Simulated assay, not measured.
Amino acid sequence: MPVSCSAWDCKNRCTIQTRSQGITFHRFPTDAKLRKIWETALRKEDFSASAYSVLCSQHFTEDAIDRTGQIVRLREGAVPSIFNFPAHLQKKPVKPRKTVTSQKAAAPYEVVVVKAVSKANKEKTETLVCDEHSYALDPSPNRVKDRLAQALANMERLQRQLRNAKDRERRCRTTLKSALDDLKQRNLISDELHQRLDMYSSL
C-alpha cells in the first residue's frame, strides 16, 4: 500500500507519478526532540508519528533538502515549514510592540561625519541617517564587488553540481526501476515485494 504524507490536507502518496515530479518522502527523525518539533509543526491534535509516518518534500524549503547524492536526504536538523493550514489553524499576526525600547530599536540611527572646510582646521559636522546597521555592508565598494563576483561564481558552480547530481539520480532510478520490473516479469519477486522495493527505493 502506497505511503501517504502525514501533513494536513496533503494528498501526496509515494507513487511513480509523484516520484517523476521529484517529490520524495521522508520518515520522522529518530531524535526525540526533533521528532517532537516535526509533530508540533503539523498542528494535528494528539498526533504521534509512527515508525511508518512520513512527510513529503513539499513541506520543506529547498535548502533543507540534500539532492547531491544518489538518494535524496534531508539535511541535519531540517524542520518542515511549508503547510496549507485552514483558517482556524493559521497563526494570528503578531501585533507590533509599542514600548519605548522597541521604538528606539526600530528607529534609524544617525552617523556623524566630520569634514574639514578650511586651512584653519575648522571642522563642519554633517548628520546622515543610516537605515542599516553599521556592519551590514562593507564600506569598500571594490571589496563588495569582489565578494559579489565570488558569490555568483560559487552559485554557478553549485548549480552545475546540482544538475549533475540530479542527472545521476535520474539514471540510477531508471536502472533500479528496470531491474525491479525485470525481476517481476521473471516471477522472481511477488507483487507485494515489488511494490515495497519500489516504494523504499525513493525514500
Rank of each mutant, 00 (worst) to 15 (best):
K104C: 10
S134Q: 07
Q159P: 01
R27L: 10
Q195S: 08
L180I: 14
K119E: 15
R168N: 13
K44T: 08
W8R: 04
D182W: 02
S50G: 15
R170H: 09
L203D: 05
Y109W: 14
G77H: 07
T18E: 11
K36D: 08
Y135E: 12
S190D: 10
K115V: 15
Q17F: 04
A49S: 15
Y200P: 00
R171Q: 13
E123K: 15
E156W: 03
N142T: 14
H133G: 14
I65S: 07
N164W: 05
T15H: 03
T24A: 09
S48N: 07
P139W: 09
Q150K: 14
S202K: 00
N187G: 09
R157A: 15
L197V: 01
R27Q: 03
V100L: 12
L148G: 00
I37L: 08
Q58T: 12
R147F: 08
E123F: 14
D46A: 14
S81I: 02
T127K: 14
L162W: 03
K98M: 05
L55P: 01
Q70K: 09
S202H: 06
T174G: 03
A120Y: 13
R35T: 03
I71P: 00
L158H: 13
H133W: 07
L180G: 02
L152F: 09
D63V: 04
A64H: 06
T68Q: 12
T18C: 02
D9F: 07
T61W: 01
A151V: 04
Q161W: 08
L74Q: 04
P139G: 06
E45I: 09
S118N: 15
A179D: 02
R75S: 05
H88Q: 10
P29Y: 03
L152Y: 11
P93T: 11
N84Y: 06
L162K: 12
R67N: 11
P80N: 07
